[in-house]
């Protein structure tokens, strides 16, 4: 081949709508990913209805409701941030973005306290200190110190599903921080809101998932 190789500027193709459509497709993959969790939850709930109810009683509906409202409020602020940016009010957009991040962090802190309370009651994944110590031997004979199967499954799913959700909140909040920095730098501006828009879409999706997680864990008791 020719020795005089030349590098050419990356092919620029501005298609805001196409990019957004692509981002929606990505959001569907997130939806289907949680979908698998929801299927597992649905199957085990139908099999262990009473255990699921008993276990769900140990979750605090008040905390769950508070967190739902916090997340909904953060959805509001992020949409306001986007609208403000579109209307050219950069400062307002930045403020709203900061509030969103703060609300996300509050959500995580409350979630952390909630988890901590469960750990204190030994409701660690395996649900019992005695059993937790025997980890690595998954075929231990069930004994009296162990919770019924249905409750074990409930707590396992609770920790994994809310944990995965919290991970998404963290990713969203970090992304928002980066977006904030870009707004401050000016690379995101009223003429170029694409990244802010996608960040907001992601945040809303995380909210949508919580909208389903909330009744399934806090309201089924």
């Amino acid at each position: 081949m020719s020795e005089q190789a030349v590098t050419v500027e990356a092919f620029h193709h501005h298609d805001e709508e196409g990019t957004r459509l692509g981002f929606w497709l990505f959001l569907f993959t997130e939806l289907l990913l949680f979908g698998a969790f929801f299927i597992v939850y649905g199957v085990y709930r139908s099999a262990h209805l009473n255990d699921f109810k008993i276990a769900a009683e140990s979750l605090n509906t008040g905390i769950g409701t508070t967190n739902t409202i916090i997340l909904l409020a953060s959805s509001l602020t992020v949409v306001l941030s986007l609208n403000a940016m579109r209307a050219g009010r950069v400062k307002l957009a930045k403020t709203m973005l900061l509030i969103t991040m703060a609300l996300g962090t509050t959500f995580l802190i409350i979630k952390g306290f909630e988890w901590n309370a469960k750990f204190a009651h030994d409701l660690y994944l395996q649900t019992s200190g005695a059993i937790a110590a025997g980890k690595g031997s998954p075929l231990l004979t069930p004994g009296p110190e162990m919770l019924p199967n249905g409750q074990v499954l409930f707590y396992g799913l609770y920790f994994i599903m809310t944990g995965t959700h919290a991970l998404h909140i963290i990713i969203g909040a970090v992304w928002m921080g980066i977006v904030y920095y870009w707004i401050a730098k000016g690379s995101i501006n009223p003429e170029n809101v694409g990244v802010l828009e996608r960040c907001a879409l992601y945040w809303h999706l995380v909210d949508v998932i919580w909208i389903f997680l909330f009744p399934l864990y806090y309201l089924v008791a």
Binding site: T61, L72, N83, P215, A221
Partner: peptide, 29 residues
């Protein structure tokens, strides 16, 4: 992208509906 003026009214109405539904579902449970 022709939303030139900023108005928080629409989103706030939707938000109020969401809060209402949240409280309603907790009560109904």
């Amino acid at each position: 992208s022709n939303e030139q003026t900023f108005s928080p009214r629409g989103p706030i109405i939707v938000f109020s509906a969401l809060i209402f539904l949240t409280i309603a579902t907790v009560m109904l449970s």
